[in-house]
Design a binder for these strands. Structure first.
Length: 262
DNA sequence: CCTATAGCCTGACGGC
DNA sequence: TGCCGTCAGGCTATAG
């Protein structure tokens, strides 16, 4: 569920709380979520490090330290950061806890253990980051770039392409459905079937939907007009009121309006 | 190379 | 009351 806008809000949270502090202690409650190294190496490489700066890439959060050592967080589904004064406030599902030099703690929580943390020398050590496609909200993601991407070897459903992190960074199930709804394109359409006008609309919709979601994105508040929310609350299409269709595309539950999306 | 699918993982929820 | 099956969704590994 944490997609580009939600990870951006996690980044904001980190900047308002633990960023700038040094790690006094690393507590590992769930070693399985640590990738690329053992729990012992994870602790050792990060203890004493200062969290200098952070940025987002796709659905990853990347934290640079005062050494050639980078903390990578991936929120999987339902991952979250919590900052609190002491162990009494430790949240449920805390998998990793950093005790900071001001005594406060930063927890990485994840109910389903699908999240991942890594301590690496460079972000490019992580295959998912190395192969990550362009950032859709950056200026180098132009219509031309998007058109080229849409033209190369694509017999797949358009929704599967939107969610492919090697093509575009940061779009997951919910925003893919919303982008396609606002474009009036059915998620099951083959990418090669889209004409130039639809491709242009899709490009603008990707940018608009993600950008509009940035200011308010957080785990608990998805806009009520989103087709995901509308389906969840048993309401129909926000435009025509018709019951929403549900199917599977790219292995994911997919919601659309059979009337408004062609 | 490209695409599709199974599996990881466990809380929430509905049915009985 | 409580058991059980299903679903959710990021990604990766593997199969076709």
């Amino acid at each position: 569920m944490p997609e580009l806008p939600e990870v951006e809000s996690q980044l904001d949270y980190l900047r308002r709380t633990a960023l700038g502090r040094a790690i006094r202690k690393v507590s590992v409650f769930e070693p399985r979520i640590i990738k690329n190294s053992t729990a012992a190496a994870f602790r050792k490489t990060l203890t004493g490090r200062r969290l200098v700066s952070a940025y987002r890439r796709g659905k990853y959060l990347i934290v640079d330290t005062d050494r050639p050592r980078v903390l990578i967080l991936h929120f999987g589904m339902g991952g979250d950061l919590q900052y609190y004064p002491g162990p009494k406030q430790r949240p449920r599902f805390t998998r990793i806890e950093f005790t900071l030099d001001n005594g406060y703690r930063l927890a990485f929580t994840c109910p389903r253990n699908i999240c991942r943390v890594m301590s690496v020398g460079s972000p490019s050590d992580v295959p998912g980051l190395r192969q990550m496609g362009p950032e859709p909200l950056c200026s180098n993601f132009t219509l031309t770039v998007f058109k080229t991407m849409m033209g190369t070897g694509v017999s797949r459903a358009i929704k599967a392409l939107l969610m492919d992190q090697k093509r575009i960074a940061g779009i997951g199930n919910i925003y893919a459905d919303q982008i396609l709804f606002e474009t009036g394109i059915r998620p099951t359409r083959k990418t090669s079937d889209l004409d130039a006008r639809e491709t242009g609309r899709l490009y603008r919709s990707i940018r608009r939907v993600l950008k509009d979601a940035l200011p308010t994105a957080s785990e608990e508040a998805l806009p009520s007009h989103y087709i995901y929310s509308r389906d969840f609350s048993g309401q129909g299409c926000p435009d025509c009121g018709r019951p929403l269709a549900k199917t599977r595309v790219g292995g994911r539950t997919t919601r659309y309006c059979a009337g408004c999306q062609r």
